[in-house]
């Protein structure tokens, strides 16, 4: 129901730059996830979309109409706030009902809508309570219910599941995705959780220090990172980034030698390879290091190797075991080796 364009958006408070030059085109019915470290400007961007914050520069366009001067109240967005923002003097029922009352939903329809929303977040038994008498996770679900109770043009969700336990989080994730698909409502979602980002998003927007680092589908973000920031941010554990030299198609770093790379470039280069693309081998190896740590997790084993001064993460078989400081050889999946310019961090293609 809404297409959102952000054009050269900036937000600064005096000398503090919260967001710098964000350009983003969100399609109708799209589910976009903002992902990035704390303080990178996710909430600020979201608040500008909602109209609670005015951009210092740039335009916010919804359905082709410039929205900069339109009040938050008239933008018809529903937002889940990072800090919940439940109305303390109202019961949960009244909290969920508040947007319905404000938007003039007929009285007769309200009760059913409230109970359905409460049921979706599994809060039906708590409708009579005040927010002060709920746990953090329950409050968060109440805030979510208040946002999904009606059908706005846009859902804005700022870390709506951050305070839930793993099981409930997974359940809520499915619910949110289902609601969004069913109602076909354009959604912007902020999270720190990569799994959430990967599973929910049509496209992920990676931000750092107020700027967008990469926009892409979860696949693209994971398999085709634009720079070392994205590569080092995504994945658990993230991609190994090994600084070294590239000369005549051969990459060298302490304990590492990879041949057959691009001949077009020479100089200081960072090689990136994901832990799951590193394989312990007894044959010809790309990397030789000493075992630094072995962490079995059940379905696999995290192996940490020390090559030169660098620690390399490897996802090994579930029954892989090794002595500390033993020498170990690792081969890379050569189709999945990435090169970055060490200085700028940009990907070399």
């Amino acid at each position: 129901m809404a297409r959102i364009e952000l054009k050269n958006i900036q937000k600064s408070w005096g000398a503090i730059h919260g967001v710098r030059d964000v350009n983003l085109d969100i399609a109708d019915e799209e589910f976009v996830v903002f992902l990035g470290p704390s303080g990178c400007g996710k909430t600020t961007t979201m608040r500008m979309i909602s109209g609670l914050e005015e951009p210092s520069e740039g335009e916010i366009i919804m359905n082709g109409e410039v929205m900069n001067d339109i009040d938050a109240r008239d933008r018809d967005v529903a937002m889940v706030f990072q800090g919940y923002a439940l109305y303390p003097n109202m019961t949960i029922y009244e909290n969920i009902r508040f947007p319905l009352r404000m938007r003039g939903i007929p009285k007769g329809d309200q009760d059913g809508m409230i109970r359905r929303a409460a049921e979706l977040v599994e809060l039906s038994d708590y409708l009579d309570r005040k927010p002060g008498a709920l746990s953090g996770g329950q409050r968060q679900r109440a805030a979510l219910a208040r946002a999904i109770v009606r059908q706005p043009h846009v859902f804005l969700m700022d870390e709506p599941l951050s305070n839930l336990d793993a099981k409930l989080r997974q359940h809520m994730r499915v619910q949110i995705k289902h609601i969004q698909r069913e109602l076909k409502i354009t959604t912007v979602y902020v999270t720190h959780d990569q799994i959430e980002a990967m599973t929910l998003a049509d496209r992920i927007v990676i931000m750092e220090k107020g700027a967008i680092q990469q926009i892409g589908t979860p696949d693209e973000i994971y398999n085709d990172p634009a720079n070392t920031f994205v590569a080092g941010f995504i994945g658990a554990p993230p991609m190994n980034l090994i600084p070294g030299q590239l000369q005549g198609g051969v990459f060298t770093a302490p304990g590492v030698q990879v041949a057959g790379l691009t001949q077009d470039y020479a100089g200081a280069v960072t090689l990136g390879v994901r832990p799951e693309d590193c394989h312990v081998t007894s044959g010809s190896a790309h990397l030789t290091g000493s075992v630094y740590g072995v962490e079995p997790t059940g379905d696999m084993t995290f192996l940490t190797l020390k090559a030169g001064e660098k620690l390399i993460e490897v996802k090994a078989d579930r029954d892989y075991r090794a002595e500390l400081n033993a020498a170990e050889n690792v081969a890379f999946d050569s189709a999945r080796v990435y090169l970055f310019d060490t200085k700028s961090g940009e990907r070399l293609r």
Binding site: R73, R75, F81, A85, Y87
Partner: peptide, 29 residues
């Protein structure tokens, strides 16, 4: 009173007077 409370009321569609009457005054009773 946390500013987020008023922000929430605004996105929920409340005007200034409503916010004062239904959110702020009860909270500072």
């Amino acid at each position: 009173i946390p500013k987020e409370l008023e922000d929430a009321a605004k996105t929920d569609g409340a005007g200034e007077i409503r916010i004062l009457w239904e959110i702020i005054i009860p909270a500072i009773l």
